[in-house]
Amino acid sequence: MTRLTTVGFDADDTLWHNERVFRDTQNRFADLLADYADPDHLAERLLAAERRNIGYYGYGIKGFVLSMIETAIEITDRKVPAHVIARLLESGREMLAHPIELLPHARDAVAAIAETHRIVLITKGDLLDQERKLAQSGIGDLFDGVEIVSEKTASVYREIFARHGDGPDRSLMVGDSMRSDVLPMIEAGGWGVHVPQGTPWDIEAADPPRNEPRYRALDDLGGLPWLLAQVG
């Protein structure tokens, strides 16, 4: 078996909490629009707006806020009160200032693996926000490289692990998203490790690969050093 030399880590909801901040804001959004739509219908309309807008705004808080504003305009037939728009903008600023809280075992796992492998942070989202989170996390100095990308695909992984390591076939990617962190990494020729965290965003949902020898799943990052020792 080819020895693994490089490990890639996703950031949001792999190393620190993120999705619950979006969920809390979406609940406040539902309260603000309660007179115009029930929560389930509003959630469907918001998700549709997010799907439409990813190609324009990318991933992250700013695109999410713009999608909420767009949905509010649509759901109220362009009659959304100005105070609702103002509250949504305020919610976005609050999200961008939210303190970082590392997930259990994240710090210890990253520190342990940094002693034996090259490690790279590979994340999607707004550049300034991701840089802020990494700076506040207290673990940024442990990484040999940081890549903030617009999308995670097999070709992106091939390029990143060729630049930071010995190619994807000697690399492993760990993250909470089956769609972005696991499946394209396996397609690129590497290992994909799924560490689920809470309820996944619908856009990131995907079925696990069947009969794939380079796929593993863990309950949390605490098992990652042991897994690396087993697979190489």
Rank of each mutant, 00 (worst) to 15 (best):
G175P: 05
R170E: 13
L221W: 15
F143Y: 14
D129W: 09
R179V: 02
R214S: 00
E212Q: 11
R132G: 15
R158I: 13
R210E: 00
K124R: 12
E115N: 06
E159N: 08
D219C: 04
G222D: 08
G165P: 01
S150Q: 09
I186P: 02
H194N: 03
N211V: 00
I113K: 03
Q197C: 08
W226T: 05
D126L: 04
M185G: 09
G167P: 14
P209E: 01
E187S: 08
E159Y: 06
V182A: 06
R210Y: 00
V156D: 05
A109Y: 02
D126W: 09
Y157I: 02
V156T: 15
L228N: 03
L218I: 08
D169I: 05
S171G: 11
K133G: 11
E131F: 04
T153V: 04
E187R: 06
E115G: 07
R158T: 13
P104F: 14
V193H: 03
A111Y: 02
M185V: 12
G198S: 06
L127K: 13
L128H: 07
A229P: 02
L142V: 08
T153M: 05
G222Y: 10
I186A: 10
G192L: 00
A109I: 00
D207L: 01
H164I: 05
R107N: 11
P168N: 03
P209I: 00
V195M: 07
A206R: 07
K133P: 01
A114R: 15
Q136H: 13
K152R: 11
T116S: 13
H164L: 05
I113H: 02
E212S: 09
P209L: 00
S137F: 12
D219R: 13
L134T: 12
P104E: 12
I203Y: 14
H117M: 05
G125E: 13
H164Q: 08
E115L: 09
L172V: 15
K124S: 09
V156K: 07
R118C: 03
A229V: 01
V149N: 08
I203N: 11
G192D: 03
L172N: 00
A114H: 04
E212F: 01
G145E: 14
I139N: 11
S171P: 03
Q197D: 05
K152Y: 03
W201Y: 14
G223Q: 06
E131L: 13
S150F: 08
R107E: 15
V195R: 11
D166T: 10
L172H: 04
L127F: 09
T199E: 15
A135W: 08
R216S: 02
Q130G: 09
D207A: 02
L142G: 07
R118A: 07
V193R: 04
L142H: 10
I113V: 15
E204I: 01
V182H: 09
